[in-house]
Simulated scan of single mutants.
Amino acid sequence: MVKEIKAMNQKSQEFNEQRTLSHGNKNETIEETIERIKQRIIQSGDKPHVTVARQLELLNELASFPLGQFLLQNRGVNGYWTDYVMEHQYRGRITGIDAEGRILTELEKFLLDKKFLPTQQRYVIFSEFIQNYVRDGIVFASLPCGVMKDLLKLDFTGIENFRLVGIDIDYESLELAKKLAEEYGLSEKVEFHQEDAWKLPFEDEFTLLTSNGLNVYEADDNKVTELYRQFFQALMPGGILVTSFLTPSPNINPNSEWDMSQINSEDLLLSKIIFFDILDVKFTAFRSSSTTKLQLQSVGFDEIEFIWDNARRYPTVTARKPK
């Protein structure tokens, strides 16, 4: 499975789980990408918090491993790399090597052990919460599903009547999810749909819908509210939404909900240099829990609850569609 995923991932570098995420030039080689970013860094000059020399050093380090190369070309992660990041906490963090036996570089360890820790914690929270809703007759949906391990890994012991639905705009992710469903022996229980999350054809269909990785790329609050409206429509009465969002840092919002006692300032600076100065990432849409709650309420959700990661940076929010 790992080799098949890697081969498909290398075949197409386009990342389009949602249209606003796609950035990498499909005609641009990794060498061209590195050179373009290098020239941008040089032209921008030294910054108060980081020199050109340090940025170029980090650029070269990012280019030395697969995840770094993908981030350089796409400024985000697709279904395959999301799964790679999530699964690291169960294997790579312990062994220091990836699934193919390659020793992780120090910068790679930083990204996987520290930078992506909040989303890894979020993944565990999602899994534990969703497992509590597994019972006969359920219809669970994942959007964007990526490789859909969030649902495929659930324990369905003793459950015969259930359906899993994977929805993604990215064809490659859907194909990988189909292969994984076969490996889990769940092909007969799974169906897949290539759809735009903002134009869903479903109505009153799902018992539970899980969604991670869309709202963080959309800065327009009205569009995010519309996304939640699509989720609301797709859920059956009494259905549960499980989603997440990024909270703003103290630098962005003085009323930040971050728990700074859980955050290392040097790690935070390194993350800023990598993701904003070098990669110029697109996932910069931050929202407070109060804003998120109002958005969900405005489309009809009730029983809205928050489950926080340790640093309160990437919380999970659950909500119910009234019966």
Rank of each mutant, 00 (worst) to 15 (best):
L117M: 15
E128R: 07
I103V: 11
L59W: 05
Y84A: 06
P66L: 08
F116S: 11
F65K: 13
Q120F: 06
Y80I: 04
E32H: 01
R40C: 11
R75I: 01
Q55E: 14
I103A: 04
R102C: 01
L59K: 03
L107H: 13
G96M: 04
L58G: 05
K109N: 06
E57W: 04
E100C: 01
H88F: 07
A53V: 14
A53P: 08
T119L: 10
G79K: 07
F116V: 05
G92K: 02
I30C: 13
A63T: 04
L104F: 03
F70I: 06
F116N: 07
T119H: 11
L112A: 03
V134L: 04
Y80L: 02
Q55M: 15
I103C: 03
E100A: 00
R93I: 14
D98E: 03
L58C: 05
N25A: 07
K26Y: 02
L104M: 13
H49R: 12
L107V: 07
R75G: 03
H88V: 02
R91E: 12
T29D: 01
V52K: 15
Q73M: 08
R40N: 14
L62F: 09
Y90N: 14
R36C: 05
Y123P: 01
T105N: 08
D98A: 00
T95K: 01
V77Q: 10
Q55K: 12
Q131K: 02
D113N: 12
Q121Y: 10
N60S: 15
N25Y: 11
R36P: 01
G68A: 04
R54A: 12
E108I: 10
S64H: 09
T51Y: 04
N78H: 03
L56E: 08
E108M: 09
H49E: 13
T51A: 11
K26R: 12
V134G: 06
F126A: 08
A99F: 03
G96D: 03
Q69M: 14
D83K: 14
Q73R: 09
Q39R: 13
H88W: 09
L59T: 02
A53E: 13
G137S: 07
I42S: 14
R135V: 04
Q39Y: 09
I103F: 02
L112I: 01
R102T: 01
T119G: 03
T33M: 05
T33L: 01
K109Y: 00
N74R: 02
E35T: 15
K115T: 15
K26P: 09
L112V: 03
L72F: 03
I130S: 15
G68Q: 08
I125F: 10
K109R: 14
I41C: 15
V50A: 15
E100V: 00
R102G: 00
Q73D: 04
P118S: 11
L72M: 03
A53S: 13
K38P: 10
Q89N: 10
S44G: 08
I97L: 00
G96T: 07
T119V: 15
D113Q: 11
Y90G: 06
L71V: 01
E32W: 01
V77P: 06
H88S: 11
H49V: 12
I41W: 13
H49Y: 10
M86P: 05
I34T: 02
N132W: 08
R93H: 13
S44K: 15
T33K: 06
